[in-house]
Simulated assay, not measured.
Amino acid sequence: MGPRRLPLLVAALAGCLLPARGCVMCDPNVVEALNSLETDYLPGHLEAKHHKNVMKRVKQAVEAFKDLPIDEDSYMGVVDEATLEKAAWSLLKDLKRIMDSDVKGELFVKELFWMLHLAKDNFASYAAQFQKTERKVKFHQMEDMVLDCELNWHKISQGLTDYSFYRVWRNNSETLVSKGKEPTLTKTMVRPKDAGTYRCELGSVQSSPATIIYFHVTVLPKRIVEEIPSPNTETKDEVAPGEVPLDRPQTATTLQSQSPKPEKVLRRRLVGLLIWGFVVLIASVATV
């Protein structure tokens, strides 16, 4: 398959991400690309008797790209151009690797279908980012509530506009809370009345939004912070004005701590004996 035919196949496969495109095999570009694969590339890499069966399987694999594991009720049908280009170039690189390796026969068939299998998984992972999602978040009363609507692919995507946050009421009506380039909604000192459902929407230059996220907010009771006194802090008995503090009864431990140590008692006795010895000695000398 010539280099000019590869973008046709890639573009056709990329179109499978959009359910509105309908039948993939009805696209004339797909038909032309698959015909080129059969007439230009297969003859030099696979026996003629296997061409018909391989092409039948290739067409089935391409048609299977529209069967992505995506919930139709949550899929928004919008995939930005940057994401499509990323997936397309990934497929181009893998297909080029197979052709440059010049593999033939059964090994070529295995690598070709394994590449298509991985390409479908890549498209599914890219498309999954463009679904409506729901998040359950909890905040404590009197603390700040922050709802973040930004996804990792937003900054590198093109054709995106503003973030809009709505408060969704029980009757399904909505009130616009904020709109702008900031992807977060912040509310300080939340209260029980702030609990409920919020909807974030990232606009696009197309008619449909690129991202929709529902936040189900629960406001919990205020946190109770228990103050624990430091172990090094000495506590004293509180005395009211005019009152005389009463002495606390001394325990055995207190009395023991207040009594002199045996070493000090012995030292005092020795000093006393020495003093009396000197007194007796002086008295004896005086008498003589």
Rank of each mutant, 00 (worst) to 15 (best):
M1N: 06
G2T: 14
G2E: 14
P3F: 05
L6Q: 09
V10C: 10
A11S: 15
A12C: 15
L13M: 14
L13V: 08
L13S: 05
C16M: 11
A20R: 13
A20N: 06
G22S: 11
G22R: 03
V24T: 15
C26R: 12
D27S: 09
P28Q: 11
A33V: 00
L37N: 05
E38I: 07
P43N: 09
L46Q: 04
E47I: 12
A48Y: 12
A48I: 09
A48P: 02
K49A: 13
K52P: 01
R57A: 05
Q60N: 15
Q60R: 10
A64P: 01
D67G: 05
D73P: 00
S74D: 14
D80A: 04
E81M: 12
E81V: 08
E85I: 12
W89Y: 13
W89P: 00
W89R: 13
S90H: 12
K93C: 12
R97P: 00
R97L: 04
S101E: 14
D102C: 09
K104D: 06
F108M: 14
V109H: 03
V109R: 02
L112F: 03
F113E: 05
F113L: 08
M115G: 02
L118A: 06
K120N: 03
F123P: 01
A128C: 05
F130R: 11
F130G: 01
K132Y: 10
K132M: 10
E134T: 13
R135I: 00
K136Y: 12
K138T: 11
K138V: 02
Q141H: 05
D144E: 12
E150H: 04
N152D: 15
Q158C: 06
L160K: 04
T161M: 08
W169L: 13
W169R: 11
W169G: 01
T175M: 09
T175L: 04
L176F: 08
K179P: 01
T184G: 03
T184A: 11
R191E: 10
D194R: 00
A195Q: 09
G196T: 01
G196H: 04
T197L: 02
R199N: 01
E201S: 15
Q206E: 12
S208C: 09
A210Y: 03
I213K: 01
I213E: 02
H216Y: 12
H216R: 12
V217A: 04
V219N: 00
P221Q: 13
P221C: 08
R223P: 05
R223Q: 14
I224M: 06
E226G: 01
E227F: 15
P229I: 07
P231C: 05
T233G: 02
K236D: 11
D237P: 10
P241Q: 11
G242Y: 05
P245F: 10
L246S: 11
R248I: 07
P249N: 10
P249V: 07
A252G: 08
T253C: 08
Q256T: 09
S257Y: 07
S259F: 06
K261A: 09
K261Q: 03
E263I: 04
E263L: 13
K264Y: 04
K264M: 10
L266F: 06
L266C: 03
R269D: 07
G272N: 08
L274M: 06
L274R: 06
L274A: 11
F278V: 15
I282V: 13
I282A: 04
I282Y: 03
S284C: 13
A286C: 14
A286I: 15
T287C: 11
